[in-house]
């Protein structure tokens, strides 16, 4: 219910389908501008959100389109926070190793770049798991300088 939210945050729930990615990245870009970030930074935030939601759809839900991905945008004086929740497979600690770009250049291969873009383009990337509810969260934070 709306009463649970204050006026500096809102939520969006989308089906776990890649056709909605552009809708979400467009929203993230606009939200960044509303938060006071510049155009270049807003573009980075939107890419980070694309990567995070893509990970949920393709890896947490294994490409199954009948699930839900819930996003919450929080606007504070210090930062824009984007929380992404899902009930699929959580990311494991050993999957959080960032690839070394120099190694990538020497040995090109697919995969692993999304996490690197997220970490480079955001100030903080956090992964959380709530065993009680079975929900997993990816939290992206961009500070407003």
């Amino acid at each position: 219910m709306a009463s649970e939210l204050d006026h500096a945050q809102f939520r969006l729930i989308i089906p776990s389908q890649t056709r909605y990615l552009n809708l979400v990245t467009g929203l993230a870009k606009r939200a960044s501008l509303v938060a006071g970030l510049d155009d270049a930074t807003a573009a980075k935030v939107s890419i980070a959100v694309d990567e995070a939601v893509t990970n949920v759809i393709l890896h947490a839900y294994h490409g199954e389109g009948e699930h839900s991905v819930e996003l919450e945008l929080r606007f504070t004086e210090e930062a824009l926070e984007i929380h992404i929740w899902h009930s699929g497979q959580g990311i494991r600690g050993d999957q959080l190793v960032l690839p070394d770009p120099k190694e990538y250049i020497k040995h090109p291969r697919k995969g692993g770049l999304g996490l690197l873009l997220m970490s480079r383009f955001m100030d903080e990337v956090q992964f959380k798991s709530d065993e009680a509810s079975g929900r997993n969260e990816c939290c992206l934070i961009k500070k407003i300088s």
Partner: peptide, 12 residues
């Protein structure tokens, strides 16, 4: 824009 999915296609 291009995400890592597109970069992967080029890398491949």
């Amino acid at each position: 824009y291009i995400s890592s999915a597109g970069l992967g296609a080029i890398m491949g």
